[in-house]
Design a protein around this nucleic acid. Structure first.
Ligand SMILES: [Mn+2]
Ligand SMILES: [Mn+2]
Ligand SMILES: [Zn+2]
Ligand SMILES: [Zn+2]
Lengths: 138, 138
DNA sequence: GCTTGACTTAGACATTGTCTATTGTAGGAT
DNA sequence: ATCCTACAATAGACAATGTCTAAGTCAAGC
């Protein structure tokens, strides 16, 4: 995720301790944290960071296209740093675990013209739901 | 939607004015209202109905499988009375208009085993995004 | 090292959702 | 028809999530 920091510097971002910490927290695979989860973890690394800064930074990262907002959970938005490799999500209905998945085919092509109601369709989001191995064992 | 009221009576529901009004508000095609939108419209028909009752009634309808919660909008849950005919959604990114759509194929079959991480996958939700004819004209 | 405008902060406020204690009533019993 | 009572509705407190503002701070260019 240091390449992210590079890109952001290139876009004129001031590199503050807060932004570095948010970027660190978002680093990794299958990361889909809520804003307050990002805040908690950020506080672990930089105790004085505020909620407002976390919300601001996440909002900026989304505007820049470096992070995606996903709605897999019907309560809070989740923030996904895996913005540069298109993918969908598989969610455990019991524990909420989320994995990135790459289905075959192109779901966009499966929407017939007759079902488009004159819309220009540009994007599709697929959420699979089920039970993860951990929850199935229990 | 009077068949809905019949089914609910069959399930032991007391028929109150409030529940009738919520059912009326949810009647129709392509209806995907937030709880507070349901409340506003219900107030138009029965001014003294409370927010709590609307939330309670919607929650019960969801538990009974008569209404679906959908997460097409990343802020509030939306309530969909079209629970008995499986479908997906097409959303205008600008004005938020939502249409029910029926894509070809079975997206569940498009998720390879290697991409299931040991989950038992039971359901899939597809959200198409684009621009509606109204917003395109403006 | 200054300066300055971008950044951070605390906390108020807004929206969405949940819960409880009290009051009301639908629908069966009489 | 009236009474009873368990179920339902209500007001409003509380919780969770998200937005905004005014004031203080500091990264980065000079
Ligand atoms: Mn993801
Ligand atoms: Mn629908
Ligand atoms: Zn699980
Ligand atoms: Zn539109």
């Amino acid at each position: 995720m240091s390449d992210l920091l590079e890109r952001l510097r290139g876009r004129g971002w001031r590199m503050t301790a807060q932004r570095r910490v948010v970027a660190e927290v978002l680093d990794g695979e299958h990361v889909h944290l809520t804003a307050d989860e990002v805040h908690s973890r950020a506080v672990g690394k930089l105790p004085e960071i505020s909620r407002a800064t976390v919300y601001n930074t996440l909002g900026e990262l989304v505007s820049l296209g470096e992070v995606l907002e996903v709605a897999t959970d019907k309560r809070a938005k989740r923030y996904d740093p895996n913005a540069h490799r298109p993918h969908h999500h598989l969610v455990c209905s019991q524990c909420g675990a989320i994995r990135d998945v790459h289905p075959n085919g192109n779901p966009l092509a499966d929407l017939p013209d007759a079902e488009r109601f004159g819309f220009t369709v540009s994007d599709v989001e697929v959420t699979y739901r089920g039970t993860c191995p951990n929850c199935a064992a229990a």
